[in-house]
Every structure is written in C-alpha cells, then in structure tokens.
Design a protein around this nucleic acid. Structure first.
Lengths: 202, 202
DNA sequence: TTACTCATGTAAGTAGTTACATGATTCC
DNA sequence: GGAATCATGTAACTACTTACATGAGTAA
C-alpha cells in the first residue's frame, strides 16, 4: 500500500485536491513514484472512509465544486507507523533483464537497438533527477518550500537530506544502467565480429 | 506478458512440467524473475490454448499423471517475435525509495535499521548472483548444459554471454544499492549528531 | 469560439499475491 | 507409518493499466 502513504506524505504538507495530487506525481515525485488519476481518486475515497484524510467540498467558479483533502490526526499517525515499518525489498523481477537474457533470439541490430534505448532512457531520467536533486539541495521546489514552512526548523536538514539521498541513489542507479547498456553494446559488437570471423573461416 | 516468455524460453531447452518450471524459477532464474505455481499453472493452460506449447499427459507411478509441456513451432516464433520487441522500461516506482524519502517521520534508530537491512538484503542477493554468474561462465549449470546441447555451436558464445551480462548487471546494481545504504547509514549518524549538538546549544 | 486546463469519475482487463485444497510418490 | 517431495489446481484479493466518459473554467 505505497500509494496510500505517498498520498499521505504529500497531504501532510497541506490540503490538496485529487487533481493537485495527480499533478504532483507527474511533476516532482514523478521520479520516485507514479500513479494515474484513475487510481488516485478511488484511493482518496477509501482513505477518507478509513479516516486518514478528510474532504472539504469547495466551489470553483459558479456551478462546479471540487473536493479538497486534508490529512487527519489518524493519517499523521499512520504516516509515522508506516515510516517505522521495515523496508520491503521488492521481488526481483525485471522485464529488461529477462529480455536481455534471451537476446540470442534477436538479431545483432535489434540487440544494439535495445541497449541504445535502455541507455538513452536512463540518460534522460538521470538528467531529470540531477536537476531535481539540485533544486532540493537549494530547498527550491514548491513542495519543499511549503513542507519546510510547515515543519519545525530542527527537522529541516533531515527532511531535505533524506530526499536528496534518495535522488542521489536514483542517479547512481541510472549510472549503472547506462554503463551496463554501454557494455552491452560492446558485447554485441564483439559477438557479431566473432560470428563474422567464424563465417570467413568456414 | 513476461511470465509467458520466461516460460517459453525455459521450455525451448526441452519439455517440462509446471512443477519443473516452478522449481526453475526458485532455483536458477530466480534471480532475474520469479513466479509462484499458482500463477504458472493457469498461464500454461492459456499458452496451450494459444498453441504456443503442447501438453503430453504422462503417467507417474501407477495411479497419477502429470502434464509435460513442449514448445511448439508457434511458440518458437513467438519467442523470436518477443526478442525483437523493444525493451520496455518499467515505470519508476520503488517502494524502498519512497519509504526512504520520508524517513524524517521515523526515529534515527529505525532509519539505521532500514539501511542496514537494505544493505544486507543486497549483499545476500549479490552473493547468489556472483556464484551464478561464475557457474554460467563455466557453462556449468543444469539448464545451461541442456540449452547449449540443443542449440548450434556458433550460438553458444552469445547464449552464454547475454546471460552473463545480465547477471553482471544485477551485481553492479547490488553494488550501488549496498553503497547507497552505507551512505544512508552515515547520513543518519550525521543527522543525529547535528541534532545532538543543537540540543546542547539550546 | 475554440482550445487548454481543471476536475472527477467508472469499467474492463492484466498481473500478481496469499491462502486454501488435495492427493500420489518416494524415501527412511 | 510418517515425512518430504512431486504435482496441480482454485479463490479471493490487491495493485495497477488503458480506455471511456463527462463537464466546467479560463484565456486567446
């Protein structure tokens, strides 16, 4: 139940609508978690039913309304309870690694394309993370400013430091993925060259 | 639909029962993919219905039977089709990173325990992968021996090399996780020391 | 008036989990 | 005879995805 706690952690900085939350997922927290609005809206309803958050119906314009959710005391307790829970290592199950494991069924060109795309994907992600971690370090994101304003000053360093540490971890992970893909490209070239030599020998 | 292709790739080395396949998932391929028997048995039935594999009812003992599945021509084509498909980058969604991001809600002791367990988890996994990659390099696993025997010799290098490359990637990934956890431990200690100093100053 | 953003949902389907359930075989 | 292993399933549930659906507000 990570979505629930991601939402609680966001609502702990201040009240938001489902729409706001969905946007945060694709803006800043995008990099560490993602969820679609079709998952968020129902989850907010059950969280409300569970007493973790409370909704206020607010008007927007003349005819329309929106529901703004605020974290409750029970929600805050739940956030602490969750934080104290042990990390749960996800079951090792990587589509990319499974796919790469059986590249002998593909052509060398395909194999190269796979590794190139993998490299490019992580290079792009890395860029986003680097920018984000820089902004976090400067305490210069919308969310972080509001979050710090809502928490006692002696906690500020920890609040920032843990988030920075997470993004540094993601960057380091991107680095190994990029390196792995580069080595994969070299490997494919070597395999193709060896195949070529074998063909000449025959 | 990765399970389906993992099963096809395994059945391409020779016929197996659902039970055999489930065991392989917890033995050698465990490290790259996992699936429970309750997922495997129904999937085999639908793969059979789709004509990717064919079952032979075999007796075991006197009263019991078992279903042994063999890959069909259509199954082999599907395996190639899948290998030619682009890698699909999974949506960035890591429970551990989300959890670590909000460690300010936990105590320093908890935070340290989290990072220690994370480090230990990957240290253990790493050990398994190192052993496995060594065995693969020596072409010395049950599955690899049979696989190579069933494939033309000019493919052997590629078959081994791609798998070795995947496990090397997993090892590199374990290394960054371990390093990240170590740095996390240092960070928690620093944060705690700073908190202590602040308390003395006050 | 048109396009974009704000805002909130439902429905059907996929993938995977844990628990429940059963029974034969084989080895000691 | 009992325990471990071989062998195969079902059921209920959780998390998530894609597609469908609607409509108000706002700025050009």
């Amino acid at each position: 139940m990570s979505l629930r706690h991601a939402l609680l952690a966001l609502l702990d900085v201040g009240p938001m609508t489902g729409y706001d939350l969905a946007r945060v997922f694709t803006d800043s927290v995008r990099f560490a978690w993602r969820a679609s609005h079709s998952q968020i809206y129902p989850e907010l309803r059950t969280m409300e039913a569970d007493g973790l958050i409370a909704a206020t119906e607010m008007e927007r314009g003349t005819r329309a309304t929106k529901r703004q959710y605020a974290i409750t005391d029970r929600g805050q307790e739940e956030l602490v309870r969750w934080a104290e829970e042990p990390f749960e290592a996800p079951p090792e199950r990587s589509v990319v690694h499974l796919h790469a494991m059986y590249l002998e069924y593909a052509s060398f060109d395909t194999a190269r394309r796979q590794f190139r795309e993998h490299r490019d994907h992580y290079a792009t992600a890395r860029l986003g993370w680097v920018q984000h971690v820089e902004a976090l370090r400067n305490r210069d994101t919308n969310l972080m400013r509001v979050r710090l304003a809502s928490k006692p000053e002696e906690m500020h360093d920890a609040i920032v430091a843990y988030k920075v540490h997470v993004y540094e971890g993601l960057i380091a992970r991107a680095d190994v993925e990029i390196d792995w893909a580069e080595k994969g490209l070299t490997l494919v070239n070597e395999l193709e060259a060896a195949r070529g030599r074998a063909a000449v020998d025959a």
